[in-house]
Simulated scan of single mutants.
Amino acid sequence: MTKHKIYTMSLASVYPHYVTKAEKKGRTKSEVDEIIRWLTGYSQVKLEAQLEKQTDFETFFAEAPQLNPSRALIKGVICGIRVEDIEEPTMREIRYLDKLIDELAKGKTMEKILRK
């Protein structure tokens, strides 16, 4: 079975789109970074290093220091698919990130986005 194309894409190639999506709705790059750090456990320095290294999504999530246990609380539809129904672990992590960025762009408070 071949891997989905997104697994081999670098986070750095998609990251500017996350930031642009957030900024168009009056949110900030630092909020995007906070979401990524919350989800993965990367520090800001290590996140920036991953972006600089052009790390692909599969490696980025595989090497994540501490995937947040509260990420299981992320529910809803992204790209027409319910995130909680995605069985493949790496794809689920990618879609969790997509969903959180979506929530940021839709104006949800950081407290709600980070499931506090």
Results as ranks from 00 to 15, higher is better:
Lys3Ser: 12
Lys3Tyr: 12
His4Trp: 12
Tyr7Val: 01
Tyr7Gln: 04
Met9Cys: 07
Met9Trp: 11
Ser10Thr: 14
Ser10Val: 05
Leu11Pro: 01
Leu11Met: 14
Ala12Ile: 03
Ser13Leu: 11
Ser13Met: 08
Val14His: 12
Val14Ala: 12
Tyr15Asn: 11
Tyr15Ser: 05
His17Leu: 15
Val19Phe: 07
Val19Gln: 08
Thr20Arg: 15
Lys21Pro: 00
Glu23Arg: 13
Glu23Ser: 09
Glu23Met: 13
Arg27Pro: 02
Thr28Tyr: 06
Lys29Ser: 06
Ser30Lys: 13
Ile35Ala: 01
Ile35Cys: 02
Ile35Tyr: 07
Ile35Glu: 03
Ile36Gln: 01
Ile36Ser: 00
Arg37Ser: 01
Leu39Asn: 04
Leu39Pro: 00
Thr40Ile: 00
Tyr42Gln: 01
Ser43Gln: 02
Ser43Val: 01
Ser43Glu: 07
Gln44Trp: 08
Leu47His: 03
Leu47Ile: 04
Glu48Val: 02
Gln50Glu: 15
Gln50Cys: 14
Gln50Tyr: 13
Leu51Met: 06
Leu51Arg: 05
Leu51Cys: 03
Leu51Trp: 06
Glu52Ile: 11
Gln54Asp: 11
Gln54Cys: 04
Gln54Met: 12
Gln54Thr: 08
Thr55Met: 11
Thr55Leu: 07
Thr55Arg: 07
Glu58Ala: 13
Thr59Tyr: 06
Thr59Ile: 10
Phe61Glu: 02
Ala62Phe: 10
Glu63Ile: 00
Pro65Gly: 00
Leu67Ser: 00
Asn68Met: 02
Asn68Gln: 05
Pro69Leu: 02
Ser70Glu: 12
Arg71His: 11
Ala72Thr: 08
Leu73Val: 00
Leu73Thr: 02
Ile74Arg: 08
Lys75Trp: 09
Gly76Ile: 10
Ile78Met: 15
Cys79Gln: 14
Ile81Val: 15
Val83Asn: 06
Val83Thr: 13
Glu84Gln: 14
Ile86Trp: 02
Glu87Cys: 05
Glu88Ser: 01
Glu88Asn: 03
Pro89His: 11
Pro89Met: 09
Pro89Val: 09
Thr90Ala: 05
Thr90Asp: 04
Thr90Ser: 09
Met91Leu: 14
Ile94Ser: 02
Tyr96Phe: 13
Leu97Met: 15
Asp98Ile: 00
Lys99Cys: 06
Lys99Thr: 11
Leu100Arg: 12
Ile101Gly: 00
Asp102Glu: 15
Leu104Cys: 05
Gly107Leu: 09
Gly107Asp: 08
Gly107Glu: 08
Lys108Gly: 00
Thr109Gln: 10
Thr109Ser: 15
Glu111Gly: 03
Leu114Asn: 07
Arg115Gly: 01
Lys116Ala: 11
